[in-house]
Computed example of a mutant assay.
Amino acid sequence: MSESIRPGLEFVYEAGGALGAPIAIGDTPDGTRRIIPIFSGPVEGPRIRGKLIGSGADWQVTRSDGVTVADATYAMETDDGVVIQIRNRGLRHGPAEVMQRLARGEEVDPADYYFRTIPEFIAPIGKYDWLNRSVFVCTGARYANAIRLWVWRVT
């Protein structure tokens, strides 16, 4: 394989957001569903700065194999006033005792579990339309009342 076709990663930003109390939907044919409200928090990175804006949510399902499938839709407002929509889908899982500690709201080292997502951006034409033309990957950390995300562009 030629090194020229090997993808790389370019760090884009780190974001943090406050989370609301989970809203239980309950057991469904595909797993246990709940909604996690996402509120504001900072966005800081070399190519983009701003804040997450409220009224977003993660519509999660936890499958019978213990894997939580995240499907979050929220928005950010850049420090120059541009609003960008984000849909972030991915997986979170780990050893049962680690996931139980997370569920109890305990502080858990993000290295102890797998939390990876694929954010998709809808940015207006202009300064940030480069977000519409790339693939991104994200690592995450879940805390009792907050979330932290690190986003990279695949080059």
Rank of each mutant, 00 (worst) to 15 (best):
Ser4Cys: 06
Arg6Ala: 08
Gly8Tyr: 07
Tyr13Ala: 07
Glu14Phe: 04
Gly17Pro: 00
Leu19Phe: 03
Leu19Tyr: 03
Ala21Ser: 06
Pro22Met: 05
Ala24Thr: 06
Asp27Glu: 12
Thr28Ile: 06
Pro29Cys: 05
Asp30Met: 09
Arg33Lys: 13
Ile35Val: 15
Ile36His: 00
Pro42Ser: 05
Pro42Arg: 05
Val43Glu: 02
Glu44Ala: 09
Ile48Cys: 11
Ile48Gly: 10
Arg49Phe: 01
Arg49Gly: 04
Lys51Tyr: 01
Lys51Cys: 05
Gly54Met: 12
Gly54Phe: 11
Gly54Arg: 12
Ser55Phe: 15
Gly56Gln: 08
Trp59Phe: 15
Trp59Gln: 11
Gln60Gly: 11
Ser64Ile: 03
Asp65Val: 09
Gly66Thr: 04
Val67Thr: 15
Val69Glu: 08
Ala70His: 14
Thr73Met: 09
Tyr74Pro: 05
Thr78Met: 10
Thr78Ser: 09
Val83Arg: 15
Gln85Val: 11
Ile86Trp: 12
Ile86Glu: 00
Ile86His: 03
Arg89Lys: 13
Arg89Pro: 00
Gly90Tyr: 12
Arg92His: 07
Ala96Thr: 12
Gln100Phe: 03
Arg101Asp: 01
Leu102Asp: 02
Ala103Trp: 06
Gly105Val: 07
Val108Asp: 00
Val108Arg: 15
Val108Leu: 11
Pro110Cys: 11
Tyr113Met: 11
Tyr113Ile: 12
Tyr114Asn: 02
Tyr114Phe: 15
Phe115Met: 15
Pro119Thr: 10
Phe121Cys: 03
Ala123Leu: 08
Trp130His: 07
Asn132Asp: 14
Asn132Pro: 09
Ser134Trp: 07
Phe136Ile: 08
Gly140Cys: 13
Ala141Gln: 14
Ala141Trp: 03
Asn145Phe: 09
Ala146Glu: 02
Arg148Cys: 00
Arg148Thr: 01
Arg153Pro: 00
Thr155Glu: 03
Thr155Gly: 10
Thr155Phe: 04
